[in-house]
């Protein structure tokens, strides 16, 4: 398995390089270094000299991809792309365009993102699996029918509606929790209740439908029929046999998203005023801070690749028939 993992890590290098080039190209198609300088320096009384100074200080005075003024390796190394990208592979994110240490900011802002993402994931799993099992148990009854209808309706509603509706109902009308905000330590709990509930409710439709499909697929398999033939109760069949076997796709589906939990949720963080990595990325895009955008895309890619590797590994853990070679 070790050889497999090493091979996958080596495969990741060209992928990351490609992602980096793509990000670079897309960013600089829309924003030139002059635009970035003007955005950073402000809108009023920005002189060409100030723009030039800004670019010079941050290394944006160099050509983008190829430096025709240099010879040999320097024509590649003395470019914005090379200067800004190489350090990423050492996980040195450098400084943002306004001088902040990106690595430190990420280390600070991933915790609020996790503080929402982990409860939403765990409680969501619990609720969705429970509900899906319930529907599977009552399959082909009115409970199954109306639950599926409910799930489809819930899936069709925009996530933004849950957020605004939840804030309006729970905070504005019922006055049960603060409408937005965040704090550190235990004080954070009262701010996390609503986004967690909304995150869970917002995911019930699609999650339950997906798990119901998995359970129903398992329920029709021969080993389930055998279990029933042995005289086991339906509850035991569901919990001891169906759930355990359906856990394989559930687990692998969860593992793949685990690393991405760090990246946060763009809309939720924005509406609830939570200082996580989702809002960090959005702010960077709005302020044309290439250093942060590049770092976050790179980090997202690394975490995604990590998630895929972990998924492969988790297959071998939950299904002994799978071998990684």
């Amino acid at each position: 398995m070790m050889a497999y993992i090493i091979r996958r890590i080596l495969y990741a290098i060209p992928i990351l390089l490609g992602v980096n080039i793509l990000t670079f190209m897309l960013f600089f198609v829309v924003n030139s270094p002059d635009d970035m300088a003007r955005m950073n320096l402000g809108m009023k009384r920005v002189t060409p000299e100030a723009v030039e100074n800004w670019k010079q200080e941050r290394g944006y005075h160099l050509p983008l991809l190829y430096n025709s003024g240099r010879e040999g390796a320097a024509s590649i190394t003395e470019t914005i792309f090379f200067q800004k990208s190489v350090k990423l592979f050492k996980f040195d994110f450098g400084s943002s365009d306004n001088g902040r240490d990106i690595g430190y900011d990420i280390s600070q802002r991933m915790w609020p993102s996790l503080a929402i993402a982990i409860p939403v994931l765990l409680v969501g799993l619990l609720v969705n699996i429970t509900y899906a099992l319930l529907i599977a148990f009552f399959r082909a009854t009115y409970i199954d029918f109306w639950s599926v209808v409910l799930c489809v309706v819930m899936m069709s509603i925009s996530g933004l509606f849950y957020i605004i509706g939840g804030q309006y109902l729970v905070s504005k009308l019922l006055h049960l929790v603060p409408i937005s905000g965040y704090d550190t330590g235990l004080e954070a709990i009262k701010f996390l209740v609503l986004p967690t509930i909304i995150g869970v409710i917002g995911g019930i439709g699609s999650g339950t439908r997906w798990y119901r499909t998995l359970f129903l697929e398992e329920i029709n398999k021969e080993y389930v029929r055998t279990a029933r033939a042995k005289g086991l109760s339906e509850t035991l069949v569901l919990f001891r046999h169906v759930l355990r076997n359906a856990l394989i796709p559930i687990l692998t589906g969860v593992v793949v998203v685990l690393p991405l939990l760090f990246m946060g949720s763009l809309i939720t963080e924005s509406f609830f005023g939570i200082p996580g990595l989702g809002s960090y990325t959005i702010d960077a895009i709005n302020s044309q801070d290439f250093a942060i955008v590049r770092s976050m895309v790179f980090l997202g890619s690394v975490l995604y690749i990590l998630g895929l590797i972990l998924t492969d590994i988790s297959y071998t853990v939950v299904d002994p028939r799978v071998r990684l070679t």
Partner: peptide, 30 residues
């Protein structure tokens, strides 16, 4: 599984209780 439900309920209750001690429940400030 029943134990898990119980634990979840306890945690949720603890969340609510800690969020709702004293003053207005939706007060975002200490």
């Amino acid at each position: 599984m029943a134990g898990l439900y119980k634990k979840a309920l306890i945690i949720l209750t603890a969340f609510l209780v800690s969020a709702c001690t004293g003053g207005s429940w939706n007060n975002p400030y200490p």
